[in-house]
């Protein structure tokens, strides 16, 4: 792509990654969540792939594959935390400790260490979606690039 696209991409890729991390991290307080934040961060990866060559992200492919598997396994593990009650029960909400603070009813500013397993699940699903969509776009970009070993 041209130098204009490259310059704008250099500025916008960190912004996209940080905004995706923000949307994942504040998923239990503000609109958004794991899926949305992962999609935003993956669109930053797609911006790298479109504006630069696909070879830039080729070393990341194994990392993306590992992240996808880790996210999926972590999501199911956090779901199994509530198996004493039901599957997907929020075991550590309101129990105190990290992520266990209770929340009053009504409008309030919200605190990051509430909601039990929800932030952990948000991170798991966010990493999974980021790795999944990113690897899809990366495989598309690497297709037919000559002597590649996908």
């Amino acid at each position: 792509m041209s130098v204009v696209v490259r310059t704008i991409a250099r500025m916008l890729v960190p912004v996209g990654l940080v905004f995706g991390a923000y949307v994942i991290m504040h998923g239990h307080l503000t609109p958004g969540g794991g899926f949305q934040g992962g999609a935003v961060a993956a669109s930053a990866l797609a911006l790298i792939l479109v504006s630069f060559s696909a070879k830039e992200l080729k070393p990341v492919k194994g990392l993306l594959s590992a992240l996808e598997s880790t996210g999926g396994v972590a999501f199911v593990v956090f779901a199994f935390l509530g198996i004493g009650f039901t599957f997907f029960a929020n075991a550590i909400a309101g129990m105190g400790g990290l992520f266990g603070q209770p929340v009053d009813y009504g409008p309030n500013p919200g605190y990051l260490n509430t909601s039990g397993t929800l932030p952990l699940m948000n991170w798991a699903v966010g990493l999974k979606v980021l790795a999944g969509l990113g690897s899809v776009v990366l495989l598309f970009a690497l297709f037919g690039e000559g002597e590649d070993d996908r």
Partner: peptide, 21 residues
């Protein structure tokens, strides 16, 4: 949802807790 899940965002509480499947 604020009492049971302790999440301010009711949508995320539904998506990840009530409707986790």
């Amino acid at each position: 949802s604020q009492d049971e899940v302790a999440a301010n965002n009711a949508v995320t509480a539904i998506v990840f807790d009530y409707r986790g499947y």
